[in-house]
Nucleic acid binder design. Structure first.
Lengths: 198, 198
DNA sequence: GTCTATACCGAGATAGAC
DNA sequence: GTCTATCTCGGTATAGAC
């Protein structure tokens, strides 16, 4: 019988293993996350990884969930701000640090447990954003003739992720034009950005 | 002294190894591409992989280059068609089959040789698209007030890739609205799509 | 060019002491 | 909970016969 502790557990060792996994993934990719590397990075031994997670899928899912939870709350806060569209845009754009995201996407292509987790998470984010943006645009009046809520949400998400991805390759041709496309719309409905980015 | 044949070589064995690599990457991810698996898939032996490629980076770079070359020509053809914007959009959207692309992006995060290759390739595509779209929009008259060429090109690329990525997770909320955003613009400048997709 | 054989290393997994 | 020890498998790489 496998122990396979649930996510409610939060021992220091368990956290150290998750932190180590995140670090290794960022630096060398998901394929480099191995029991031995984890043990070395977390300054423990490989048997504890088995004790806490049982297998890699469980560990990856936990790690993804941890990050998604943070992002979700960040976006919730953004939507409660005085300029919710600007704040949402900034939150999405900041969070599109894709090195880690792309690792999970690649992983998901071949591991069902992770695919399911990302899919559920994506739908949850989309629902949050869509409901909020629908309400915000309605409150502002009529400008739904430019972008529907769905189009706007997907536009922000797509542009952010794609630009961040290219930035990682030091490619940035015409990026400013794409950013301006979104920000000119934000200015039109919500005025100039007032708060400086924190 | 390593043999490390250049890309000019095209022996059947070499091609078989590249084909095998592509298959394994698609099905199980880049991490599953190993000398033994390659040999098994290509029905040869692992020593030949060393003979032809020397190491994995070289093989991955060759494989990426092979695919990029095909895409580049596909886009060149698209741009020569009677409705170049529609054709370009379809070419980009069709080619955003991201399973393989995402593998390369993830790989690139940690392998310099591949990062460089993708960066160069991306710039080459961007230049082609940007030059062409600039000329096309100018020829059509004035509608640069809606999208600048750079914004349009990045919009098509971002939306395509992001939507394809989500499709892989069976997430498609509001996708039709994003597609419509682009296609309504295409209809406005280039009329209804005439050719059916091949 | 192609193959077999093999050296060597690090992967995941688990048994069992403490 | 934590650790050591150890099993087995599959990875890369290379030497050398044909």
């Amino acid at each position: 019988m496998k122990p396979a502790r649930g996510s409610d557990e939060d021992s220091p060792t368990r956290t150290a293993l998750l932190d180590a996994a995140e670090l290794i993934m960022r630096e060398e990719g998901y394929a480099a996350v191995s029991t031995r590397r984890l043990a070395a990075r977390a300054e423990t031994n490989s048997a504890l990884y088995h004790y806490y997670f049982g297998n890699m899928d469980n560990l990856f899912v936990e790690l993804f969930r941890r990050g998604a939870e943070r992002s979700y709350h960040r976006q919730l806060e953004a939507l409660a701000s005085p300029q919710p569209l600007w704040s949402l845009w900034e939150a999405i754009h900041d969070q599109s640090h894709t090195a880690l995201t792309m690792e999970f996407v690649a992983l998901a292509n071949h591991r069902k447990a992770i695919r399911t987790e990302i899919a559920d998470s994506s739908r949850r984010f989309r629902t949050l954003q869509l409901d909020a943006v629908t309400k915000i645009l309605a409150d502002y009046g009529k400008p739904a003739e430019t972008y529907t809520p769905g189009a706007l949400v997907l536009l922000m998400s797509s542009i952010s992720r794609f630009l961040r991805m290219e930035e990682a390759f030091a490619v940035d041709t015409a990026h400013d034009e794409a950013i301006e496309l979104i920000e000119s719309f934000l200015r039109a409905v919500e005025g100039e950005r007032r708060q400086p980015r924190p």
